[in-house]
């Protein structure tokens, strides 16, 4: 497996590249810092809030499924120049799992940086062929009568899952519901689980 730390020569190459681009007036350090800050405003909290809203607001749910990009922009995601966002709805008996076997396509505008496991070669290779064992590695065991639908994100869209609202969350407020949602539930490796503590 690749080491998580970049090699010194890669760091040196990046700095020479940035210096060359800066010398030509193409990119400045200030622009890089600003772009980095803007990128880091995207996080799974955006996707989580969208799902929680969809669970309590049927009109928003309809919009989310019909035009994910517009729904995301209503939650502050910057969709300009971004690939279209598609949202796939889990139903009783149907569970979606998203992977990109060719690279690592990921709905970054609403989930932020892709996690290391999503980018790993093992996940990319196995999710399409052995999804139930992959799910089991996250402790997600689905009964045989639930169809696992693996979504290989090969081309133009970025896909996010709208999971089923878990039982036991009746009467929860939107923020409480959003707290159940993580990047893992929006990709489909985990199901949202209400914690052992009952909400106030």
């Amino acid at each position: 497996m690749p080491k998580p730390d970049p090699r010194p020569e890669s760091i040196a190459l990046l700095e020479r590249l940035v210096a060359a681009l800066a010398a030509r007036g193409i990119v400045s350090e200030e622009e890089i810092a600003a772009k980095r800050a803007a990128t880091e405003r995207a996080s799974p909290q955006i996707g989580a809030r969208m799902v929680a809203r969809a669970w309590i607001d049927p009109a928003f749910r309809a919009l989310l499924l019909a035009d994910g990009s517009r729904a995301a922009s209503l939650f502050g995601a910057d969709m300009r120049g971004q690939p279209p966002l598609g949202v796939l709805e889990d139903r009783p008996g149907l569970h979606h799992l998203v992977v990109c076997t060719l690279c690592s396509c990921y709905p970054r505008a609403v989930l932020g940086y892709p996690p290391a496991w999503y980018k790993s070669q093992a996940y990319r290779a196995r999710a399409v062929r052995d999804p139930r064992r992959v799910l089991a590695e996250w402790g997600t065991v689905l009964p045989p009568d639930v169809q696992v639908r693996v979504v290989d994100s090969t081309a133009e869209y970025r896909w996010m899952v709208l999971p089923l609202r878990p039982a036991g969350t009746e009467g929860w407020e939107e923020a409480q519901l959003a707290s159940l949602i993580t990047a893992e539930t929006l990709v489909g490796v985990r199901l949202p689980q209400p914690g052992p503590a009952l909400p106030a």
Binding site: T101, S120, Q121, A122, R124, A125, R129, V134
Partner: peptide, 12 residues
């Protein structure tokens, strides 16, 4: 990489 057998036993 989709389905590549060399990763069959590689945990994630």
């Amino acid at each position: 990489l989709g389905g590549a057998a060399r990763f069959r036993c590689t945990p994630i």
